[in-house]
Design a protein around this nucleic acid. Structure first.
Length: 137
DNA sequence: GCCAACGTTGGC
DNA sequence: GCCAACGTTGGC
Protein backbone atom coordinates (compact mmCIF):
# COMPACT_ATOMS: atom_id res chain seq x y z
CA UNK A 1 0.00 0.00 0.00
CA UNK A 2 1.25 3.45 -0.85
CA UNK A 3 0.69 6.98 0.38
CA UNK A 4 0.02 10.09 -1.71
CA UNK A 5 -0.89 13.74 -1.53
CA UNK A 6 -3.63 15.36 -3.62
CA UNK A 7 -3.60 19.11 -4.04
CA UNK A 8 -6.66 21.23 -4.61
CA UNK A 9 -7.91 24.76 -4.28
CA UNK A 10 -10.92 25.61 -2.16
CA UNK A 11 -12.53 27.49 -5.03
CA UNK A 12 -12.23 24.46 -7.33
CA UNK A 13 -12.83 21.48 -5.07
CA UNK A 14 -12.96 21.87 -1.31
CA UNK A 15 -12.71 19.29 1.44
CA UNK A 16 -16.40 19.92 2.12
CA UNK A 17 -17.14 19.04 -1.52
CA UNK A 18 -15.18 15.84 -1.09
CA UNK A 19 -16.94 14.98 2.20
CA UNK A 20 -20.30 15.58 0.60
CA UNK A 21 -19.60 12.82 -1.91
CA UNK A 22 -19.37 10.29 0.91
CA UNK A 23 -18.36 6.73 0.19
CA UNK A 24 -19.31 7.12 -3.48
CA UNK A 25 -16.30 9.37 -3.87
CA UNK A 26 -15.42 11.33 -6.96
CA UNK A 27 -12.88 11.18 -9.74
CA UNK A 28 -9.81 13.34 -9.26
CA UNK A 29 -10.10 14.93 -12.67
CA UNK A 30 -8.47 17.94 -14.24
CA UNK A 31 -4.87 16.87 -13.84
CA UNK A 32 -2.90 17.95 -16.92
CA UNK A 33 0.59 17.13 -15.82
CA UNK A 34 2.43 13.97 -16.82
CA UNK A 35 4.23 13.43 -13.55
CA UNK A 36 1.02 13.73 -11.57
CA UNK A 37 -0.80 11.47 -14.02
CA UNK A 38 1.93 8.85 -13.82
CA UNK A 39 1.56 8.69 -10.06
CA UNK A 40 -2.18 8.18 -10.44
CA UNK A 41 -1.59 5.36 -12.90
CA UNK A 42 0.30 3.33 -10.31
CA UNK A 43 -2.16 3.89 -7.48
CA UNK A 44 -4.04 0.91 -6.16
CA UNK A 45 -7.40 0.56 -4.48
CA UNK A 46 -6.95 1.08 -0.76
CA UNK A 47 -4.00 3.47 -1.12
CA UNK A 48 -4.35 6.50 1.15
CA UNK A 49 -3.68 10.14 0.45
CA UNK A 50 -3.62 13.53 2.10
CA UNK A 51 -6.02 16.20 0.87
CA UNK A 52 -4.01 19.44 0.66
CA UNK A 53 -5.32 22.93 -0.03
CA UNK A 54 -3.00 25.25 -1.93
CA UNK A 55 -3.10 29.03 -2.31
CA UNK A 56 -4.83 30.55 0.70
CA UNK A 57 -5.10 27.72 3.24
CA UNK A 58 -1.85 25.88 2.49
CA UNK A 59 -2.58 22.92 4.74
CA UNK A 60 -3.44 19.26 4.82
CA UNK A 61 -7.03 18.96 6.00
CA UNK A 62 -8.05 15.37 5.43
CA UNK A 63 -7.31 11.82 4.42
CA UNK A 64 -8.72 10.16 1.33
CA UNK A 65 -8.75 6.61 0.04
CA UNK A 66 -8.32 5.46 -3.55
CA UNK A 67 -11.47 3.58 -4.61
CA UNK A 68 -10.86 3.18 -8.34
CA UNK A 69 -7.65 2.78 -10.27
CA UNK A 70 -6.70 5.03 -13.20
CA UNK A 71 -9.26 5.46 -15.95
CA UNK A 72 -9.84 8.12 -18.64
CA UNK A 73 -10.56 11.60 -17.28
CA UNK A 74 -14.22 12.27 -18.06
CA UNK A 75 -13.62 16.02 -18.34
CA UNK A 76 -11.60 15.71 -21.54
CA UNK A 77 -11.60 13.75 -24.79
CA UNK A 78 -7.82 13.86 -24.78
CA UNK A 79 -6.84 10.27 -24.17
CA UNK A 80 -3.56 11.25 -22.57
CA UNK A 81 -5.22 12.12 -19.29
CA UNK A 82 -6.25 9.54 -16.73
CA UNK A 83 -7.42 9.90 -13.15
CA UNK A 84 -8.36 7.81 -10.14
CA UNK A 85 -11.45 7.99 -7.92
CA UNK A 86 -11.07 8.89 -4.26
CA UNK A 87 -13.37 9.13 -1.28
CA UNK A 88 -12.99 11.07 1.96
CA UNK A 89 -11.78 8.84 4.75
CA UNK A 90 -11.40 11.17 7.72
CA UNK A 91 -10.73 14.77 8.61
CA UNK A 92 -7.65 15.85 10.50
CA UNK A 93 -8.38 17.10 13.99
CA UNK A 94 -5.81 19.80 13.42
CA UNK A 95 -4.95 20.96 9.90
CA UNK A 96 -1.25 20.55 9.21
CA UNK A 97 0.03 23.70 7.57
CA UNK A 98 2.77 24.01 4.99
CA UNK A 99 4.66 26.10 7.52
CA UNK A 100 4.55 23.26 10.05
CA UNK A 101 5.94 20.90 7.41
CA UNK A 102 8.72 23.31 6.54
CA UNK A 103 9.64 23.80 10.18
CA UNK A 104 9.84 20.08 10.94
CA UNK A 105 13.33 18.83 10.04
CA UNK A 106 11.93 15.31 9.58
CA UNK A 107 9.88 16.58 6.65
CA UNK A 108 12.65 18.48 4.91
CA UNK A 109 12.72 16.00 2.02
CA UNK A 110 8.99 16.03 1.47
CA UNK A 111 7.92 16.72 -2.10
CA UNK A 112 5.41 19.26 -0.85
CA UNK A 113 8.23 21.24 0.73
CA UNK A 114 10.59 21.00 -2.22
CA UNK A 115 8.38 20.96 -5.30
CA UNK A 116 5.31 22.93 -4.46
CA UNK A 117 3.95 22.84 -7.98
CA UNK A 118 3.36 19.10 -8.33
CA UNK A 119 -0.36 18.50 -7.82
CA UNK A 120 -0.27 14.77 -7.14
CA UNK A 121 2.75 13.50 -5.27
CA UNK A 122 4.04 10.50 -3.32
CA UNK A 123 4.41 10.56 0.47
CA UNK A 124 6.76 8.21 2.32
CA UNK A 125 5.45 6.05 5.18
CA UNK A 126 7.59 8.07 7.60
CA UNK A 127 6.17 11.36 6.37
CA UNK A 128 2.69 9.90 6.50
CA UNK A 129 3.09 8.93 10.15
CA UNK A 130 4.50 12.32 11.13
CA UNK A 131 1.72 14.31 9.50
CA UNK A 132 -0.97 12.02 10.92
CA UNK A 133 0.58 12.63 14.33
CA UNK A 134 0.68 16.39 13.85
CA UNK A 135 -2.89 16.28 12.59
CA UNK A 136 -4.17 14.36 15.57
CA UNK A 137 -5.26 11.23 13.72
C1' DG B 1 0.16 41.35 -7.16
C1' DC B 2 4.76 39.70 -7.84
C1' DC B 3 7.97 36.49 -9.08
C1' DA B 4 10.51 32.04 -9.07
C1' DA B 5 10.16 27.50 -10.59
C1' DC B 6 8.66 24.50 -13.63
C1' DG B 7 6.29 22.44 -17.82
C1' DT B 8 4.97 22.73 -22.55
C1' DT B 9 5.17 24.23 -27.21
C1' DG B 10 7.04 25.01 -31.55
C1' DG B 11 10.61 26.73 -34.74
C1' DC B 12 14.88 25.49 -36.42
C1' DG C 1 16.77 16.96 -30.57
C1' DC C 2 17.73 21.52 -28.79
C1' DC C 3 16.33 25.61 -26.83
C1' DA C 4 13.88 30.03 -26.58
C1' DA C 5 9.50 31.73 -25.65
C1' DC C 6 5.59 31.40 -23.34
C1' DG C 7 2.03 29.90 -19.88
C1' DT C 8 0.79 28.23 -15.31
C1' DT C 9 1.22 27.29 -10.53
C1' DG C 10 1.60 28.53 -5.96
C1' DG C 11 4.15 30.62 -2.07
C1' DC C 12 5.07 34.96 -0.28
Amino acid sequence: MAYWLFKSEVSTWSWEDQLAKGDAGEEWDGVRNYQARNFMRVMEIGDLGFFYLSQKEKCVVGIVEVIATAHPDSTTDDERWDCVDIKASKSLKTPVTLQMCKEDPRLSDMVLVNNSRLSVQPVTPAEWAIICDLGGV
